[in-house]
């Protein structure tokens, strides 16, 4: 227990938690927006890979960091549009479309990477986002350096939680998105185009996912590796269920998750000799399953999740 307390008191632990949580926040919010509109987006794993590659490649080719983030978001939104044309307009299986998008987006990213850098054996590096200290706040002991000396993208991630909450719950657009996921007929009765609302939500959500991927190559690390998303997208899908489709709970779930993962890395250094490292690496996946089981009884799915809407058809 003493060891555990020591870990909790180090600024390094909190800084790592906030770093790990950033891509999870982007991914979870992105998935949450899609599902709130009634579309399960299993393309997330591939879209995060594409965002990671696109943002990094933009900067590597001489672009600026922030336009790189915007480029990643644009690529994400494009895959979102592809997803929506299948699931929203054609109304085909959301499960299979999502898996197809993941296969397509990740393999396309690897293909493009190899085309642009045919002979790179060690992955080349870029100059990533530098951390920005917020004056005064950074001087608070332990949490100060962790929370207020971070990459600008991390601030953006933390900021996007209240923004997504506000848009979903306090604006007419948000109401339309949530209704499209609960009762699309009612949206149609208001004279709002359900298909357009869903498409917009999937595109916006996918853009966020891609920015989450870009965080990993442009802020956390400085290079693009094959397989670097490594299931983070699927973990985000589990976190959405854990959060009962609410942005504020998504932040809480992601923080809890990231904290446990940061702890895991530190515990691994202490107990690595006794317990093989693979068991530590399994923890995030095991935890995601446990999180879904814990929340299963209380889960309240958006009523129209997975149900395609065809104008004039009865449901």
């Amino acid at each position: 227990m003493g060891d555990l307390f020591d870990i909790l008191m180090t600024a390094g632990f909190w800084a790592a938690t906030i770093r790990i949580v950033s891509p999870l926040i982007f991914g979870t919010l992105g998935e949450l927006i899609c599902e709130r509109a009634g579309v399960l987006n299993l393309g997330i794993e591939g879209i995060m890979t594409a965002g990671a590659m696109a943002g990094w490649m933009w900067v590597y080719q001489g672009g600026d960091l922030w336009t790189g983030v915007m480029f990643a978001a644009f690529i994400g939104a494009s895959f979102g549009l592809l997803h929506a044309s299948f699931t929203v307009y054609l109304g085909v299986s959301q499960h299979v479309t999502g898996i197809g998008i993941t296969l397509f987006a990740s393999s396309l990213s690897y293909f493009v990477y190899r085309m642009l850098l045919p002979s790179a054996t060690t992955p080349p590096k870029i100059e990533p986002f530098q951390s920005v200290a917020i004056p005064f706040l950074v001087d608070i002991p332990v949490i100060g350096p962790a929370l207020f000396n971070q990459s600008p993208l991390t601030y953006l991630a933390l900021l996007s939680v209240p923004v997504v909450w506000y848009v979903l719950y306090r604006t007419p657009i948000g109401l339309a998105v949530r209704m499209a996921g609960e009762n699309p007929m009612a949206v149609e009765a208001q004279g709002i185009d359900v298909l357009a609302v869903r498409t917009g939500a999937v595109m916006a959500g996918s853009a966020l996912m891609a920015v989450g991927g870009a965080f990993i190559t442009m802020s956390w690390f400085d290079a693009f590796y094959f397989g670097m998303i490594n299931g983070r997208g699927w973990i985000c899908v589990a976190l959405v269920i854990f959060a009962s489709w609410r942005p504020q709970k998504a932040l809480l779930g992601a923080l809890l998750f990231a904290g446990l993962e940061a702890m895991q890395v530190r515990a691994q250094q202490k107990a690595g000799a006794v317990i093989p490292y693979q068991f530590f690496l399994m923890l995030p996946y095991v935890l995601s399953i446990v999180a879904m089981v814990v929340m299963a009884r209380r889960a309240r799915y958006p009523q129209a999740l997975l149900v395609p809407f065809r104008r004039g058809e009865r449901h």
Binding site: L82, G100, S106, S107, L108, Y110, F111, R114, M115, P118
Partner: peptide, 14 residues
Amino acid sequence: PTYIADVLVGVSVL
């Protein structure tokens, strides 16, 4: 690049 095979698989699903 060999990744063309994986692209073909992904596109064929869609």
